[in-house]
Design a protein around this nucleic acid. Structure first.
Lengths: 227, 227
DNA sequence: TAGATTGTTAATCGATTAACAATC
DNA sequence: TAGATTGTTAATCGATTAACAATC
């Protein structure tokens, strides 16, 4: 039932299938075409789709909308989940406009901040509320997740507070040391999804290093690096 | 020479080693301790470090600073690389303050925007320049990379333009369809590092779905999901 | 020395690929 | 029917784990 390695590939499949549908305007796609687009082997795609329990059509390919539906079902990105965003600075203001939030079933209910200059502003249709009202707001609005766009030094404490108010799931932009705040043990039902832009930047550095370097294994210069 | 699967793990090792050094204030770490912290097996850590060509000390563990040095060397995050940031809106303003940029060897030289209201402002010490001056600026300043914090519909065209001016490496926040812009083929030396926050959000949705679900394989409720 | 922990080999596990009969 | 492409099995490849002698 839990095939988490495959699950981790789903968002990627989602992206490329969407691309096929919208940019190339095709309703069906063969494992060969999709494989080329994604830089993987056709075999792998057939294996994965088969394991997802989705069948294509012999001689024709896969019905893109149907796989997308399957992926959506598995990720439950069609299930509505109320959420809030804390930290209405630059990152927060940028994030609250991000359509991927709604596309994943999250309904952004409000923004919160500590800064009196920001509190009361309306950003992208969301009023910025005072963090002092978090507790009541969470209890009244069935908040399932919080997106933390706060400075990294406050993230950990904030998670503990919000968890105390009943929020179990967090999207965080800074690496957090949970042991540091949950001294009596990290709750089993705490969910953290960490965005590691710093990792992306480091990999960019590595790719720049590699670009054009001579690859003695394949006897050619490195180009089009895939990590 | 090119062990890209291992390379992809390096930023993660970097993060946890840094954490050991700074938060736990230890100079040495055993594979057992680090494994517990990272949620992997001690074997794997010993294998990886060995493959990186780094030796620890019998009975004592690994010298954290030394591995960090090794990782830094491999990723070349200590090599200085001039870069620019395009799009000085909320995301751009947030990114230009991000210390991971400098930590990875990138030296942010300037911000660029199209909006006359933003051009001329000084943000975090960087003057916002007019995108019309991009070409000359790039040629004069040995720009190795660009961070695109622009609206997603302009990213693709911008990459083509900047590539034409000599910038080969890009950090991008929206999935881009390169085939769409490079109709005559995607240049082999073009480097794209894509930040997929939408994937993180979808995985958050999945984790919420799983949380507390009954796992019939292990006969217990799912907690502490690792994907 | 005793204790701790590495470094490495061999075994296991899982994921990817190859191949091809099935079938639309 | 011929052509295309799936679905699945078996083979391969690679990564993870287990085990333990080596050694600080």
């Amino acid at each position: 039932m839990f095939d988490n390695k495959l699950t981790r590939k789903l968002p990627r499949y989602y992206r490329y299938l969407k691309e096929q549908l919208e940019y190339y305007e095709t309703e069906f796609v063969s494992s060969e075409i999709l494989a080329k687009l994604m830089g993987v082997s056709p075999s792998q795609i057939r294996q994965d789709f088969s394991r997802l329990g989705y069948s294509g059509f012999h001689g024709k390919g896969y019905d893109i909308r149907e796989i997308l539906k399957k992926v959506t079902n598995l990720l439950e990105t069609d299930v509505k989940k109320n959420c809030i965003l804390v930290g209405a600075g630059n990152l927060g203001q940028s994030m609250c406009k991000y359509e991927a939030i709604g596309e994943s079933g999250f309904i952004l209910k409000a923004l919160f901040d500590v800064n009196p200059k920001i509190i009361g502003l309306v950003i992208n249709g969301y009023e910025v509320l005072d963090v002092d009202h978090l507790e009541g707001y969470i209890k009244d609005n069935d908040i399932k997740a919080a997106f933390l766009c706060t400075p990294k030094n406050v993230d950990a404490a904030l998670i503990k507070t919000l968890y105390g108010h009943g929020v179990k799931a967090f999207l965080v932009f800074s690496p957090i040391i949970l042991e540091e705040i949950f001294k009596d043990g990290i709750p089993g039902d705490l969910i953290i999804e960490n965005v590691h832009i710093d990792d992306n930047i480091k990999l960019l550095s590595y790719k720049i290093k590699l670009n054009g370097q001579y690859d003695s294994i394949n006897n050619k210069n490195v180009i089009n690096i895939t990590l």
